[in-house]
């Protein structure tokens, strides 16, 4: 592919791929986070960030985007190095396990296994934000690797 396309075409192709990644993996995947506040704003109902993601919904996004990116990298990365593969698997495992554990805590509080005051919504929102951001960064990094290795 390097030999067929010139540099401008490669840059254009990579930018187009990232446009698709941004649209489908971030904007549409997180439609609840901007569509629901828009509707609340239009109907003039108050909605805070903690109320929106305090139930741990963003943890699903972290798990989904991380596993999807790892699958795509392991499937398409033709000339991937062993170190990159190791990092991919390690970070995927870390993000997924952290998200799963966080959701387990949220569920335990909800069903009454843990005390309700041991895990506040603010705390859930904070670590949901951090894990979702981690997943998005990881997805960006390995999507870049897939695109560059693939060209």
């Amino acid at each position: 592919m390097w030999k067929v396309l010139n540099d401008d075409q490669i840059v254009g192709q990579v930018l187009k791929d990232f446009g698709y990644w941004l649209l489908f993996s971030i904007v549409i995947s997180l439609a609840q986070l901007w569509l629901v506040p828009c509707i609340y704003y239009l109907t003039q109902k108050p909605l805070t960030w903690v109320e929106l993601i305090g139930n741990g919904s963003l943890l699903f996004f972290a798990t989904t985007i991380t596993s999807k990116t790892a699958g795509e990298y392991l499937k398409k990365g033709k000339s991937r190095s062993e170190l990159a593969t190791l990092i991919c698997i390690g970070v995927t495992f870390l993000i997924v396990m952290m998200s799963v554990f966080a959701y387990a805590l949220v569920t335990a509080v909800r069903i009454g296994v843990m005390a309700a005051n041991s895990l506040s919504s603010e705390r859930v929102a904070t670590f949901s934000d951090i894990l979702a951001l981690s997943g998005a960064i990881f997805s960006f990094a390995f999507t870049l690797l897939v695109r560059v290795d693939g060209k």
């Binding site: 870390l94 904070t126 960064i137 870049l144």
Partner: peptide
């Protein structure tokens, strides 16, 4: 220690970004 672990996860993903770049 979940907060610290979450920050560690974020740092790891930033490390993967640096590696990728």
């Amino acid at each position: 220690n979940f907060g610290k672990l979450a920050v560690l996860t974020l740092a790891t993903s930033l490390g993967s970004l640096v590696f990728s770049l």
